[in-house]
Amino acid sequence: MVRKITLWLLWAGFIVYAFLLTPERQAASITLLKNLFTLQWAAINPIILSIFALIGILLLIYSCVLFIDGRMQKIPFWPFVAAGAGTGVIGLIPYLALRESNQTFSGDKDAFLKLMDSRWTGVILSLNTLALLAFGWLAGDWGDFVRQFHSSRFVNAMTVAFCLFCVLFPTVLGDDMARRGIKDQPVFWAVALVPLLGPLVYLCLRPPLSVSTDAGVRQASAATLS
């Protein structure tokens, strides 16, 4: 219950912050959004482009965990990831608050769940993330980014949303580890304490989800991670 209340308060607090407390020079945001959606990316600071793209990567990271989780929940995950594609963390947090903790999986994995469960998906996401981080770091103008953070509502809220995506991943990590028979707390903390890259390494190394409930199968799968 404490977890749910905290998530709802965080959700409401972010909405209030994004629409009432972020910088109010909307002309800067309008110009940026126009350039973004008309593909005039050369006019946009690479750091901002990278953060925008990395939020998409983070949604996919959550998808690799929560589409499987949604199979066992009363509510499916797909409406929330669809909302998240348009609103970012505002669309995702309600699912995190409404879902119940669940550490089991039953039924067959269809082609889509196999894709979400595949280590190759984690590898592809990791390579794209490294490319985006290098692009933003090497080609970006950090002084300009700071100025836009303090003048553009969109840049400010997007950056805070990116941080929230990173901070909230541990709320779903424990259940995914349990579904795979991984009980090592050091693994949990190694993933949880390294924003963005920790979850990506986890997706690359986690054992495939087994629909078997046999403890021996689970332990054998968990051993492949270590």
Rank of each mutant, 00 (worst) to 15 (best):
M1E: 13
R3C: 01
I5W: 08
A12W: 07
G13Q: 10
F14Q: 05
I15Q: 04
I15D: 00
P23G: 13
L33T: 09
N35T: 02
I48R: 01
I55E: 08
G56P: 04
L58R: 07
S63F: 02
I68H: 02
D69S: 08
M72E: 15
Q73P: 11
P76R: 11
A82I: 05
T87R: 01
V89G: 05
I90V: 15
I93H: 00
A97R: 02
R99A: 09
Q103C: 07
D108K: 14
A111C: 05
K114P: 04
R119M: 04
W120G: 06
G122A: 10
V123T: 13
N128A: 15
T129Q: 05
L130S: 09
D141Q: 08
W142C: 00
S151C: 03
S152Q: 05
R153G: 01
F154A: 06
N156M: 04
A161P: 03
C163H: 04
L164A: 09
T171Y: 10
V172F: 07
R180I: 03
R180H: 03
P186K: 12
V187A: 12
F188W: 13
W189C: 09
A190D: 01
V191F: 02
L193G: 09
L196P: 02
V201F: 14
V201Q: 07
Y202F: 15
C204A: 11
T213W: 09
A220D: 08
